[in-house]
């Protein structure tokens, strides 16, 4: 057991967790933030993507105990004052989700992608979006509307 203190979605949280606890389990089982999903066990699918200190991380591949003091943002934490994040809005506007299971990871990856490209002054083309989505699998949408959603959100972020 290790006592872990983090800031999750803007709130300080502190819990005793077994050392082997994955961040995904910590969020889902200890904090009951079940918006972060786990869709595989080989860190391929990306349903579990959250932001750690501002960068997209697959939470199934990070140990909670290694993230003392980290700032963690999950899908539950990106809407501000009841206002959807532009990426969330774009996903519904463009029908970028069907069953919704991969969606939290897609949105968190999308936000990170746009932030990085903007910071680096790079052009986020649809080809680049597809390339950046390498680590996120969707079985429902065929990606068409997800790419459109990220493209649209990028213009608004």
């Amino acid at each position: 057991m290790t006592k872990i203190s983090m800031n999750v979605n803007g709130k300080a949280v502190s819990r005793d967790v077994p050392d082997e606890t994955l961040l995904s389990d910590y969020l889902r089982e200890h904090l009951r933030l079940t918006g972060t999903h786990v869709g595989c066990d080989t860190s391929q699918c990306g349903a579990c993507v959250v932001h750690v200190n501002g960068r997209a991380v697959k939470s199934c591949s990070a140990l909670a105990a290694s993230l003392e003091g980290a700032e963690v943002t999950t899908i539950e934490g990106i809407a501000q004052n009841g206002e959807l994040h532009p990426m969330q809005q774009a996903f519904t506007d463009h029908h970028g989700l069907q069953c919704g299971f991969c969606t939290p990871g897609m949105i968190m990856t999308g936000v990170d992608m746009v932030n990085r490209y903007k910071a680096e002054g790079r052009d986020l083309t649809t080809d680049a979006i597809r390339h950046e989505l390498e680590g996120n699998i969707c079985r429902c949408t065929g990606y068409h509307n997800i790419v459109r959603a990220v493209e649209d959100a990028a213009a608004k972020m």
Binding site: R28, L33, T34, G35, T36, H37, V38, T74, I75, E76, A79, L84, Q88, F91, T92, D93, H95, L97, G100, F101, T103, P104, I107
Partner: peptide, 19 residues
């Protein structure tokens, strides 16, 4: 029509069996 069900999914509030 935009989907009525989307809001819970895009905000992480969907309720799946493992939840």
């Amino acid at each position: 029509v935009k989907r009525k069900e989307d809001k819970r999914f895009i905000t992480g509030k969907g309720k799946y069996t493992d939840d």
